[in-house]
């Protein structure tokens, strides 16, 4: 399965034989997938299959975990993100991330959104005001908070907090937005708001989303990567588990006509 056969436009990121280790224990083995530009790619699979691990490898978030190591290549604009000359800080400025649990800073709504631009050296008040307004509008939160940007980000509801986190991410205008189960802590209405927002955002951004919710993957994504778990008995009777890529296909095809039996069983809800 190569990007050619799926081919629809340019890729933003190419994962080639990516392996992730946590303190020398293999966590994910040999993942090769393309992430298409201005498309939503969903990562699905049972718990412990490494889908979040792969996601966090894409913007070098795993660097923050002591002992984490990535092998293989993650190519971004023709450059391997794990090349020696690459600065992870620069990577994260271009590949933003939205986390599972909304994690606004304990600062005002304004300061939350202005955080990234300020890091990039924007100090002019008027420019910041513009960026903040544009970003909050971009995450469909403006009408709810426009009167009171001084209010703490933590005073918002869970769904609003998550949209604030998205606003914060798009304020630095990344190429790619990684979303790690962004709706798992939200109620259905807030989830719907985020999903609609994603469909809007994908016009200007490339999105990768990890989700436990197969309906969500079907609703929002263009491509889906299914990850599954491999197990092996180790000497001493201990079981070793690691994640592998099960199948990658356009979402419609993966859900209607899965190639592997494992994928089919998973999407029918037989395990997970």
């Amino acid at each position: 399965m190569t990007s050619m056969t799926l081919g629809s436009g340019a890729t933003a990121i190419d994962l080639k034989h990516v392996k992730v280790f946590y303190s020398d224990k293999l966590a994910v083995d040999d993942v090769s997938i393309p992430i298409y530009k201005n498309k939503i790619t969903a990562f699905i699979g049972p718990s412990g299959c490494g889908k979040s691990t792969v996601l966090r490898a894409i913007n070098r978030m795993n660097d923050l975990i002591p002992g984490a190591r990535v092998e293989g290549e993650i190519n971004y604009h023709g450059k391997n993100l794990y090349g020696k000359e690459v600065d992870p800080v620069e990577v994260r400025r271009r590949i933003g991330m939205v986390f599972q649990k909304p994690n606004p800073f304990p600062k005002s709504i304004y300061d939350n959104v202005a955080y990234g631009p300020r890091l990039l050296g924007v100090t002019d008040k008027r420019t910041l005001d513009e960026i903040v307004e544009r970003s909050i509008k971009g995450s469909f939160l403006w009408d709810e908070v426009k009167g009171d940007l001084k209010k703490s980000g933590l005073a918002l509801s869970g769904g609003q907090q998550q949209r604030l986190c998205i606003a914060r991410t798009i304020a630095i205008e990344p190429d790619v937005i990684l979303m790690d189960e962004p709706c798992s802590a939200l109620d259905p209405i807030a989830t719907q708001a985020i999903e609609e927002l994603m469909k809007e955002l994908v016009k200007s951004y490339t999105i990768v989303i990890v989700t436990h919710n197969m309906q969500q993957a079907q609703r929002v994504s263009d491509f889906t990567a299914f990850y599954s778990i491999r197990k092996a008995e180790e000497t001493g009777g201990q079981e070793r588990r690691w994640g592998v890529l099960g199948e990658f296909a356009p979402t419609e095809q993966l859900f209607s006509n899965p190639k592997s039996e494992e994928t089919e069983r998973y999407i029918r809800g037989e395990f997970g």
Binding site: M61, R92, G96, F99, N103, I172
Partner: peptide, 18 residues
């Protein structure tokens, strides 16, 4: 201070000192 806040900051391209 929760790890999530640190991750949020790193995720926005902040350096360690920032």
């Amino acid at each position: 201070v929760p790890r999530a806040l640190r991750e949020a900051s790193y995720g926005l391209g902040a350096t360690k000192f920032e």
